[in-house]
């Protein structure tokens, strides 16, 4: 059976620390754009920790919600892409082929979660900052769209390794950078087609829901609610 990669985000564990955000930058060669461009709304964070206030002082509450590409099974970003740069892979990922992208930004408009980021300029890595670049991840150039890939390079590496060892991929073998870094273990990644996997178990939790479920995008990320929120 093919894999179906998914993620569970436990909002009860997540403390909003943003370790996942920096980890994703480090893993995926996501550039910083600098203050001027950031002020123009061009900062790139494939995963962001949204926060929402509720109530007024002193009865004020706050919610954190890490949001990355939801890897929708019915991804609105895919059919609109004229070049198949945004497309579905056999294991259910919403893949982004940077080389094929011509920068219409249509996919980003169609994505209800606003998780697609555009390279408005060529990224800057003043030397020797370039030495930190991950050789397993391409550096995107100006004019293309980029977004969370579920750290596809890590998935491939484990797949290759497992194949070489003629074994199946075990639950927990693959950890995307964000999940790896998360100190509170709020992010769990795995195969949704394996009913025994941790992520499958969590996805079936009564606390679980999908972000913007009613849009019918069939996300593969499940959010587990903070019990005190309901």
């Amino acid at each position: 059976m093919p894999h179906r990669w998914g993620m569970a985000v436990d909002l009860d564990r997540c403390t909003g620390c943003e370790a996942c955000v920096t980890a994703c930058h480090a893993e995926n060669n996501i550039p910083t754009v600098g203050p001027e461009q950031a002020a123009r709304g061009r900062a790139m964070h494939w995963i962001r920790v949204e926060r929402y206030w509720e109530g007024d002082f002193p009865d004020v509450r706050l919610k954190f919600r890490p949001v990355m590409c939801q890897q929708c099974d019915a991804a609105p970003c895919e059919p609109v892409c004229p070049t198949y740069a945004s497309h579905h892979t056999a294991d259910g990922l919403n893949a982004q082929v940077y080389n094929r992208c011509i920068g219409t930004r249509y996919c980003a408009n169609a994505c209800p979660y606003n998780v697609r980021f555009f390279d408005f300029f060529n990224p800057q890595w003043p030397k020797p900052l370039h030495l930190q670049l991950n050789p397993d991840v391409s550096v995107r150039e100006v004019g293309v769209m980029e977004k969370c890939t579920f750290c596809v390079q890590r998935i491939s590496a484990v797949r290759t390794q497992a194949k070489a060892e003629t074994r199946e991929i075990k639950d927990g073998d693959i950890k995307p950078a964000c999940a790896q870094a998360c100190p509170a273990k709020a992010l769990v990644f795995g195969d949704l087609n394996d009913p025994e996997s941790e992520v499958s178990r969590l996805s079936r939790s009564p606390r679980g829901s999908k972000l913007l479920d009613d849009l019918g995008t069939l996300p593969k990320v499940t959010y587990l609610a903070r019990p005190s929120d309901s």
Binding site: R40, G41, R105, F118, F121, N122
Partner: peptide, 15 residues
């Protein structure tokens, strides 16, 4: 030449 960022387009207003 300079990059598409010379426009006022930003996240999320891509068009």
């Amino acid at each position: 030449y300079r990059g598409f960022g010379m426009t006022g387009i930003n996240m999320p207003i891509y068009w």
